[in-house]
């Protein structure tokens, strides 16, 4: 997919139209899903324009970039149905696996709502150890939700002594 980035002024200049016409045209493109806008307020509005509707991202990268100060550039467009959760995103982050992605994924441990779901998914994907390792690293570096005793393997292994 090819994208063009424009401000209102550069768009007007390119199409040889007035500023108001450019605003109107960009508004129509937004309604068609062919333009997305970023910035606004103190920042200059930048329009990303495509020649076909831009798929809406609501998956892993949208979730991570919402919660992590370390932002990621998507390696792929990720679209999900309504049931994609923080726990799914942690699993996906571990499976993508590069350093930047893992660092950003750590921040999701402060947003967990369902530890059972996380560890069930980890078991299904055979990455329980990786989840524990990432959690341990995250705990040292940032604020994270406290892991319930039931799932805390350190407390569980001590209690068997």
């Amino acid at each position: 997919m090819s994208f063009e980035k424009h401000t209102v002024e550069t768009f007007a200049k390119k199409h040889d139209i007035t500023r108001q016409s450019a605003i109107n045209k960009l508004s129509k493109l937004k309604k068609q899903g062919k333009a997305i806008v970023s910035g606004g307020g103190k920042q200059k509005r930048i329009y990303t324009i495509s020649n076909k509707p831009i798929p809406k991202e609501n998956g892993f990268y949208a979730l991570v970039n919402k919660h992590s100060p370390e932002k990621l550039t998507p390696k792929f467009t990720h679209q999900v149905n309504k049931n994609y959760t923080i726990e799914h995103a942690i699993i996906d982050g571990i499976k993508i696996g590069d350093v930047r992605t893992l660092n950003a994924t750590k921040h999701l441990f402060n947003q967990i709502k369902n530890w059972k779901r996380l560890f069930d998914l980890a078991k299904e994907n055979n990455i329980k150890k990786e989840v524990y390792d990432l959690y341990s690293q995250a705990k040292k570096e940032m604020k994270v939700k406290k892991i319930p005793e039931k799932y805390d393997k350190h407390k569980r292994s001590k209690s068997t002594i």
């Binding site: 798929p55 998956g59 390696k75 679209q79 999900v80 149905n81």
Partner: peptide, 13 residues
């Protein structure tokens, strides 16, 4: 492999 994909669509039920 993940490296080759351009888009991923998840249907989670």
């Amino acid at each position: 492999s993940q490296e080759n994909i351009m888009q991923r669509n998840d249907f989670i039920e």
